[in-house]
Design a protein around this nucleic acid. Structure first.
Lengths: 338, 338
DNA sequence: TTGTAAGCGTTATCAG
DNA sequence: CTGATAACGCTTACAA
């Protein structure tokens, strides 16, 4: 016991390869090899090392391994605002997809943070395998800074034109054009639109798509209001719209605002879908909840996440490859509000 | 240019302290000191180093710094299932709170993962500052394994009795007892309950709280069904309940299932709250959405996350301190369904 | 105040 | 197949 204290100066030193080597009666390198796939090592010896490691509770220190030159297996995900339902669902899928390929996602939530840039700066001190940007309103300067550090960047939701940045992006205009067409075919004529905040490319692209469909029918939207992508803001924007004009069709830049608008319509006694069609965008999980049952444009999240991981793997395999843009096709999901 | 190629063998080597030192005409240690708060270094020199660093795009490698003995500033968050709305909100707050104190959360989502244990094993190779467990059904063996590695563990949602594990936990029974009492006071007598899956301590504690209130009034629940915490399962469970019995009060183990039950009641033409009171638990953000407006027991998420971070900081400050349990008080949120 | 040198725990290289 | 040895990039005594 006394001896114990003498031998272990630091109280809770992590078990190292050295310790295991001594316990198993082999060299440090043998221990390393025992844990390296396809390294030359006598099977019996490998067995012995593994046993000793298990007994001592050893596991190779990922920090040291990462330092030594290989990959850190750390991937940062920068999220614009995790309080946004769609972003949250994307992050959830992304986390799952990354976990599955043994990449460990570090999350940074711009929504809850006062100084995003500072946080990014701190996280960039880790030699990340990659950075995933999930934000419609990310300062492109930050992305460019990452490429300077030679960290692969995957931008999701907004296409950044940079030779080192891969992008995955949904065909926004196509989706909302189809949604508008659906309502036109149903005989709707008085369209309203609830946009997202200024500066979000997805919102403006979606608005453009609607405009295009309307223009082809010789129409234009009757009224447009903007929210901030939250349910509450959708509720408020819808109320303003209902004050201003008598609509029979309402398209929204995302599902959350559409759900808010649906609440506002019901509160006002408007019959949806008999008197007013409401269509969202994204197909978040709440859209299919009983009591909401929102008709919407599906922005397929799982495909999205898989695509991000695919681009990531391709980039890691060949860091010099030209940058890529993966477009995701949308499709209409007809439920009860159109 | 040719020289460039000769000097830089690896194509995109990260800028190191050495590079900065050479550029600024100082020693490596001076560079290190320039970035260390409160280290002795001539102000003019520090300026010079910082300038050179900025120009070269240098930032201290966090891996190397962490290896060197200090903290890694990495914290793993293990989530039982990120597709669960409450867990997701907790994670969001946790991420924000950790980002704010410069700890970088690595997420592992048990819900999306086939082999949770394996993933945990991989992540434990990083010398984590701490591990946060957010899961009602986590295998306690995993937690114990972490304490063996001397990694502080904070368990959230279930109290683990271990000298090295800190806990934060909401007073579940208290909350649902109050909810039941509210409905008793309103004259309700025929109570139903939608429980969570077996093995979730929160669900059973909440059920106990309700039982206690009913027992005090000489009552017992009329019917109980179980779901899996999802909206869909709440919908289905409520339908089964409505088949079995005529209820005037329905308590649910969480908000998501209550929202499902609300949908089922409406689909059946039951007037909520005139003929049936429905009360949830947690107060997730959707509970206050227009069109849902759910009366519920608030399980204050922000306090929760702050508490976790508080325990974490205390533990890091004194790794030998006795383990702690922080109980979170609930309160009723009266909205439109009671 | 500064530079030198010794780790931190790995993995990769290179003789044997 | 295996054991030394040299990186990896940083911090921090220690000496100047």
């Amino acid at each position: 016991m006394d001896q114990d204290k003498l031998i272990a100066p630091k109280r809770h030193r992590r078990v190292t390869a050295q310790d295991v080597a001594e316990a198993a009666g082999v060299s440090r390198s043998a221990v390393s090899r025992a844990f390296t796939e396809g390294a030359y090592l006598d099977e019996e010896k490998r067995e012995r090392v593994r046993d000793a490691a298990l007994k001592l509770g050893y596991r190779p220190n990922a920090l040291a391994a990462g330092l030594q030159g290989g990959r850190s297996h750390l991937v940062a995900i920068f999220v614009g605002d995790m309080r946004n339902a769609y972003d949250t669902e994307v992050v959830t899928r992304l986390v799952g997809a990354l976990n599955a390929i043994q990449k460990w996602p570090i999350l940074i939530d711009g929504g809850g943070l006062s100084s995003v840039k500072e946080a990014m700066g701190e996280v960039l001190r880790y030699p990340l395998d990659a950075l995933i940007l999930r934000s419609g309103s990310m300062d492109p300067a930050i992305a460019r800074e990452c490429t300077k550090l030679h960290i692969p960047v995957i931008s999701s939701g907004r296409v950044l034109n940079h030779p080192q940045i891969d992008n995955v992006c949904c065909r926004n205009a196509q989706g909302s054009q189809a949604a508008a067409q659906l309502l036109l075919d149903r005989g709707r004529q008085n369209f309203g639109y609830i946009a997202g905040p200024l500066g979000y490319s997805s919102s403006s692209a979606r608005q453009d798509g609607m405009m295009r469909a309307l223009a082809a029918a010789g129409l234009a939207p009757v009224a447009i209001e903007a929210g901030d992508f939250t349910v509450e803001s959708g509720f408020a924007a819808a109320e303003r719209l209902f004050e201003r004009a008598r609509l029979d069709a309402l398209l929204c830049a995302n599902d959350a605002m559409a759900i808010g608008a649906l609440g506002a319509a019901r509160a006002r006694g408007i019959d949806v879908p008999a008197d007013l069609s409401i269509v969202g965008f994204d197909d978040i999980s709440m859209a299919r909840w009983p009591g909401i049952n929102l008709t919407t444009v599906c922005n397929p999240i799982d495909i999205y996440a898989d695509k991000v991981v695919e681009l990531l793997s391709a980039r890691l395999a060949d860091p010099e490859k030209p940058s890529d843009v993966a477009y995701i096709d949308t499709h209409l999901v007809l439920r009860g509000t159109h």
